[in-house]
Amino acid sequence: MAVVITEKAADEVKRILDDQKHESDTKLRIGITAGGCSGFSYSLTLTQDFDDEKDTKYDYHGIQVVVDKKHALYLDGTTVDFYDGIDRRGFAFNNPNATRSCGCGQSFQA
């Protein structure tokens, strides 16, 4: 299984890429960092870097998504969505590997 981004999340990434005038080969890198209130925090960055040996690349709804193979163990099966409502706005992660998540949904424990 892989990391997946929804069409709504891909549309938001496209909007950001256009607004910030990124190059056409810019990719969305999804990863994790140590920290956060539950142990790991999710990371979303825009990058042009890709290493065949260290990374896996996916294409969802016209967006190239890159995941470091070391992070894939923690992110396998994760869906990244985007919410734009009256009560919240931003990217959200649904990670089946998380044994515990914080209230804001931006960090988790595996």
Rank of each mutant, 00 (worst) to 15 (best):
F93N: 11
T33Y: 09
D11W: 00
Y83P: 00
A92R: 15
L46E: 06
T56P: 07
V65M: 04
L46K: 10
D55I: 07
H22A: 11
D76S: 13
D55A: 11
Y83M: 03
H22L: 12
V65S: 05
D59Y: 00
R29Y: 10
T33C: 05
H22E: 13
V13C: 10
K54A: 11
D18C: 02
K70H: 05
R88M: 09
T45L: 04
I63P: 05
G90H: 07
R100I: 01
I86F: 10
S38Q: 13
K21W: 02
S43V: 02
T45Y: 00
T99P: 01
H22M: 12
C37R: 12
Q64N: 14
F40S: 08
N97M: 06
N95D: 07
V65C: 06
I16G: 01
E12S: 02
C37I: 00
T78E: 01
Y74K: 07
Y60I: 09
D18P: 04
N94Q: 14
T78R: 03
V66P: 11
E23F: 05
Y83K: 04
R89H: 10
D76R: 13
V67R: 01
T78L: 08
A98F: 02
Y83G: 01
S38G: 06
K57A: 00
D87R: 08
D19F: 11
T33E: 12
L17H: 09
N95V: 11
R100P: 01
H71E: 09
Y42H: 07
T99V: 05
G31F: 00
R15V: 07
K70W: 00
K27F: 04
D11H: 11
L44W: 08
H61F: 04
S43G: 02
G36F: 02
S24K: 15
K21M: 09
S43F: 01
D52M: 04
F91K: 03
F93M: 03
N94A: 13
G62P: 07
A10S: 12
F40A: 06
D25H: 14
D87I: 10
D81L: 06
A34T: 15
P96K: 12
L75Y: 04
S43Q: 03
Y58T: 09
K57G: 04
R29I: 06
D18Q: 15
L28K: 13
D81V: 07
I30V: 15
K27G: 09
G31S: 07
D76P: 05
S43C: 05
F91I: 01
G36H: 10
D49C: 02
D59L: 14
L46C: 01
D84L: 01
D81P: 07
E53H: 03
Q64E: 15
K14C: 04
R15F: 05
N95T: 09
F40N: 14
E12L: 01
D87L: 09
D81K: 08
T33I: 09
K21N: 14
L75A: 12
Y83F: 06
D49M: 11
S41D: 10
G85E: 04
Y58S: 01
C37E: 08
L44Q: 11
D76C: 02
T56M: 13
I16L: 00
A98L: 01
D49Y: 07
R100Q: 10
T56W: 05
D18L: 14
H71D: 15
K57D: 03
